[in-house]
Simulated scan of single mutants.
Amino acid sequence: MPTALAPLDQLPIRCLTADDLTACADLSEDRGWLREEHKWSLLLTAGTGYGIDDPAGKGLIATCVATSYGPGLAAIGMVLVAERYARRGVGRRLMLHVLDKAGDTPLTLHATPNGQPLYEQLGFIQTGRAEMVAGRFTTTDPAPDIPTRPATAEDLQAVLRLDAEIFGLDRTHMITRLPAFADQLRVSEVDGEITGFAAAWPNMETHVIGPLIARDTATAQALVASLATATDRPLRTDIDVRHESLLRWLKTNGLASIAFNAVMVRSLTALPGDWNRRFAPLTVAAG
C-alpha cells in the first residue's frame, strides 16, 4: 500500500539554501510569476528563506524570505504557495512560523491585493502604497541636468552613509552586493558630495531600477535617465505613490502603471528613515 501523506499542518518547515534556487524558481513559475532566478539568488544568500517541501516529492509547495536589518526591521517577501495547495492554510502556517522566528523584530512587506487580507489578520497594517511602472524609456521630457556617473569602489562608504541616513537602518549586507548583482550602479554628485544613487539589475527581459535614493525628485530623474541610456531593455520600478511628480515624469517617458501594492508594517506605525528621499526599494521583497 502507498504511504499516507502527512497532514499539511504537520509538514516540516525548513530553512532554504542556495541549492533550492531552481525549486524556488519553479514555484514562482507555478504561480504565474516570472522565474526571477537572479533575484532569488540574492535573497537566498542575503536573507533567510523558509520553505515547505511537497510530501509527494514534487519540489517546494511554499516559500518565504526574511531579510534582516538588525533588531529594528526585517522585510518579508516571496511568500508563495503552489497552486495545487492554495487556500488550504499553507501560507498562513508558514507566515506564523516566520513571525515566531522574528520575535519582537518589526516587520514590513509589500502586499498584493490578494495577499493583503491574510497579512491584516496577522497584525500588519497598511502605511502606504507603491506603484509598479514598466515600459521602454523615452526622452519625451528630458531629465534635469544633474551630473551622474558610474559608482566606484571609492564611493562605497559615502553610499553606505547616505543609505543608512535615508533608509533609517544599516543595510550594508545588501548595498555591498549591488556591484555584483546589478548591471549598473550610478551615483549623483554635486560639489564632491554624493547626493543619490541607483542601480539597474537584470530581471528576465527587463532591468529593474532599485534602490533609488536621491535628495530630491530632480536628482531621482537624472539617475533614472542615466540608467536608461545604457540599456536596451524595458525598465521596471516600484515607486512610493507619494512621489507623484516622479511618477508623472516616468509615465510621460514611456512607462505605464502595472500594479499597486500595499506597503505594510507590523509592530511599527511607519517605516524608519526619510521617505522623501527614498523613491524605490532595492526590490519589493527586501525593502
Score class of each variant (00 low, 15 high):
268 L>G: 09
167 F>Q: 08
137 F>W: 06
49 G>T: 02
218 A>E: 13
257 S>P: 13
92 R>E: 12
252 T>M: 11
225 A>F: 00
50 Y>S: 01
62 A>G: 08
171 R>N: 09
239 I>F: 02
159 V>S: 12
197 F>K: 09
93 R>C: 00
23 A>N: 02
26 D>E: 13
109 L>A: 06
171 R>G: 00
104 D>P: 12
86 A>T: 11
98 V>A: 10
69 Y>K: 05
287 G>Q: 11
103 G>A: 04
194 I>P: 04
84 R>T: 10
188 S>G: 14
11 L>S: 13
266 R>G: 07
3 T>L: 14
219 T>W: 11
212 L>A: 01
265 V>E: 07
285 A>R: 02
154 E>P: 15
151 A>W: 01
6 A>K: 13
7 P>C: 05
123 G>K: 08
285 A>D: 05
1 M>T: 14
116 Q>T: 13
49 G>D: 07
100 D>I: 11
169 L>V: 15
85 Y>K: 04
62 A>D: 04
195 T>W: 06
87 R>P: 01
30 D>V: 04
211 P>T: 04
276 N>Q: 10
178 L>H: 00
35 R>H: 04
7 P>M: 03
174 M>T: 12
162 L>Y: 09
252 T>I: 09
42 L>F: 08
56 A>R: 02
104 D>I: 09
265 V>I: 06
249 W>S: 00
277 R>K: 13
47 G>Q: 03
74 A>R: 01
12 P>F: 11
90 V>F: 06
189 E>S: 05
60 L>Y: 05
105 T>R: 11
156 L>G: 10
201 W>R: 02
250 L>M: 07
189 E>G: 07
222 A>F: 06
241 V>C: 09
149 R>I: 06
270 A>H: 13
247 L>A: 08
39 K>A: 12
73 L>H: 08
64 C>G: 14
98 V>Q: 07
16 L>E: 00
245 S>Q: 12
127 T>Q: 13
115 G>Q: 11
29 E>S: 15
39 K>R: 06
3 T>G: 12
103 G>S: 09
223 L>V: 02
141 D>R: 13
46 A>D: 08
282 L>D: 03
151 A>Q: 03
148 T>Q: 14
18 A>H: 05
210 G>P: 02
240 D>G: 01
3 T>Y: 14
190 V>Y: 15
271 L>T: 00
177 R>D: 05
47 G>R: 06
150 P>N: 07
186 R>P: 10
156 L>A: 15
199 A>D: 00
178 L>F: 04
16 L>A: 03
66 A>M: 12
95 M>Y: 03
59 G>V: 09
55 P>F: 04
118 L>A: 03
264 M>L: 12
81 V>C: 09
251 K>I: 15
64 C>K: 13
45 T>K: 01
285 A>G: 09
124 F>R: 09
162 L>V: 08
90 V>W: 04
80 L>E: 10
126 Q>G: 15
283 T>M: 08
282 L>F: 05
199 A>M: 00
13 I>G: 10
212 L>G: 02
145 D>T: 14
164 A>N: 13
78 M>F: 08
84 R>W: 08
219 T>S: 15
128 G>S: 07
155 D>E: 10
56 A>T: 07
1 M>N: 14
221 Q>T: 07
280 A>N: 05
187 V>Q: 08
